[in-house]
Design a protein around this nucleic acid. Structure first.
Lengths: 125, 125, 125, 125
DNA sequence: GTGGTCTAGACCACT
DNA sequence: GTGGTCTAGACCACA
């Protein structure tokens, strides 16, 4: 309950979360992923919402349902996620970031500096 | 009529637009800004929508209404906008970008490369 | 229809009403509060008016919306209201009252006397 | 310019200001008060607005116009103001204050204490 | 069902 | 003319 932002549909946040798990290898290709109900309870969310997220994952070819057994992760899921995310990142996200940098007068060097700091902070955890 | 995206509330886009004008110095500190109705027809939008945007600007201390006279830009508006934008950028967006980079295995050098390309492309327009 | 004064925006009166309910414990922290539409019909008022009130409550951190589920009262809402009210009272209203007393030549003893009378009158109801 | 609140009509604030001057004896009974235009510039306000305030003062019998000479303060103006203000204070203002005190659990003793502090602070200026 | 956004049109007080 | 409030009705995405 309420690890969710209010400015983004919950089901999308669940999709993102699932992709993150796939990338991290916590959900393994070909193996069963937790049941809708299980996840719903765990997240303090309505099953409908999880199901809607699964719909999207399925539509992206990341998971497949097997009658009476639940959902299974596609064999190529990690690669698919990686690929889709990279494309989104470079095609959609970064150009917008670059524009904002320009309008705020921020140089790429500042970004690199910030990144080093962030890297340092993360490593030290 | 529809210089507006559909994926973001119009009134938010008006807020952004106003901030841009403030930064560009097209709206001057202490001076009157165009009336709600004026902007509404100019943008092909209902007055309420502009007013809602103005509510937000007012709440951020960027403009103040004077009854029967219109809205006036706060003296420190440009500084406030600059400040707010930079903070949002460094505190909210960049850390998330860095996380995504990490999960996708993207290095800072790749980003710098992308930036150079983007810079080049933009300059050549 | 018109349990509302005419000298104060309805939406502000709804805000006040909500605060009163929070203080009285009729709306409980963490729990769902009645839906916008529900309240609107109950008060004989347009939904927008209620929503505008809720916008203000939200902005004060007293309630949070959950998409498709309604508004929920913040955990610390009662404390926040209490705190805000007291501060407003002591910082804004009382000094002004004291000034008016001074300019009218009214002593604090007169006020105490009035208070006793008022107290008596209220108790006897 | 802008010694005025935004939550109260300017012309009313001018009326209040005038009453204060009358009480303080800065405007004397039977004597001419500053011209509309003079005040308007002094306050950085439109003459219309001052005039509207004067309308109200005249209607309350506090000032009288003399053709071509301007407005003059009524002989009984100080008493009238005193009287009206006291009545407003005791009939309208205080009961509401007392109600708020009750709802916030504030005792009359606290008020007296606040008053002493305020008195002290004001005297030391 | 919920909140959220947008429109159109009305009326008000203030300048 | 200005901002401000209110209404009525529509449509959307979300749960």
């Amino acid at each position: 309950m309420s690890e969710f932002r209010t400015d983004r549909p919950i089901y999308r946040q669940i999709v993102d979360y699932a992709c993150a798990l796939i990338l991290k290898g916590q959900w393994l290709p070909g193996e069963k992923i937790p049941s809708v109900r299980e996840l719903a309870v765990g997240m303090g969310v309505n099953s409908h919402t999880v199901l809607k997220a699964f719909d999207e994952l399925q539509q992206q070819g990341l998971i497949t349902p097997r009658r009476g057994m639940g959902f299974f992760l596609a064999d190529n899921a990690p690669r698919l996620v990686q690929q889709k995310n990279r494309q989104e990142f470079f095609v959609d996200t970064m150009p917008e970031i670059f524009s904002r940098m320009a309008s705020l007068g921020i140089t790429i060097d500042e970004i690199v500096g910030e990144y080093r700091e962030w890297e340092h902070k993360v490593k030290s955890l």
